[in-house]
Design a protein around this nucleic acid. Sequence first.
DNA 1: AATCTCATGCGTCAACCGTG
DNA 2: CACGGTTGACGCATGAGATT
Length: 360
Amino acid sequence: MSKCGRKKYIKTNLRQMTMETIDSQQDGSIPDSVAESESAHMQMQTGQNSIPTLAQVSVAGSGTGRGSPAVTLVQLPSGQTVHVQGVFQTRQPSVIQSPQLQTVQVATIAEADESAESESVIDFHKRREILSRRPSYRKILNELSSDVPGVPKIEEEKSEEAGTSPNISAMAVPTSIYQTSTGQYIAIAQGEAIQISNPGSDGVQGLQALTMTNSGAPPPGATIIQYATQSADGTQQFFVPGSQVVVQDEETELAPSHMAATTGDMPTYQIRAPTTALPQGVVMAASPGSLHSPQQLAEEATRKRELRLMKNREAAKECRRRKKEYVKCLESRVAVLEVQNKKLIEELETLKDICSPKTD
DNA sequence: AATCTCATGCGTCAACCGTG
DNA sequence: CACGGTTGACGCATGAGATT
């Protein structure tokens, strides 16, 4: 791949991915690449574009009821409709589901129902305009977190340079939202509590308690968390955004001894936050009122430029970090949705076997 | 070992957007 | 409307792996 090709690959970015989703949904084809997961999600929500060999499944209550019991309406090929309580409950809006995509979903339903071509063309252009520029990743993540109960919003990272809130620790690591392989949502804020929002598939709904200590022994920035896993196999996977690293420490050698003693065989995870050695603010030299000579003006202009360059440098780093986090969240969502889709298909097959008339 | 290819990250510019 | 934050785009540097 040439450098230009690489750029092209990179530039097949999130905006284009969203556009592809729209386009492919308009002509009814299934998009490949990452947008495929969105397509799968729409299948589950709208009951359209269902897999040909399977019965159509429509989810009552738009499939967005938070924690509410999932009532699935299964329409069998014979015309029968069966209300079932899903083993895999209908999920709340996932961690990554941008408002744009929600708009697309609604529009897709509307187009399917009304089949008004002219309106769809207008909608298409409207959506094009809406998607001309994506909101910031922070905004997207904040809106997403507001849809998930119990998951705190990502705090505005204001006053990184100007002013320090007394409650903000020295390391300004922003809150991160993770999604585990089992669909749980984990919000981690440096120096604050870790919350796990359980989708409630196993009856344990709401937040789970989590033990977190900041050990003195590990290197700076390391955080020891202890998570009582509830999964059958006893393992828990974390999808880690950004440059943060989650290490499962089975020997618990980094954990304090009293923690290991009180937690038994619970696995210990160590989250190493990226070192945020942000250069502190530049000391403002001269006040504008004291400038007289052209040389001083030039120096002031240079100083302002360098200050702006420095700020933009840090902003670009932060932006890239958020983008990586966003992409990793998308990838984790793809993985979760694939598992979810697989389980739904299996559940449907089981129901078909149960409900199909036996011809003895 | 030298070269090539590719992935990744960084600095900068410019455009957009929200806010006061 | 000015200002500052955000982010796409571009060029560049660097390191790792593949190839010659």
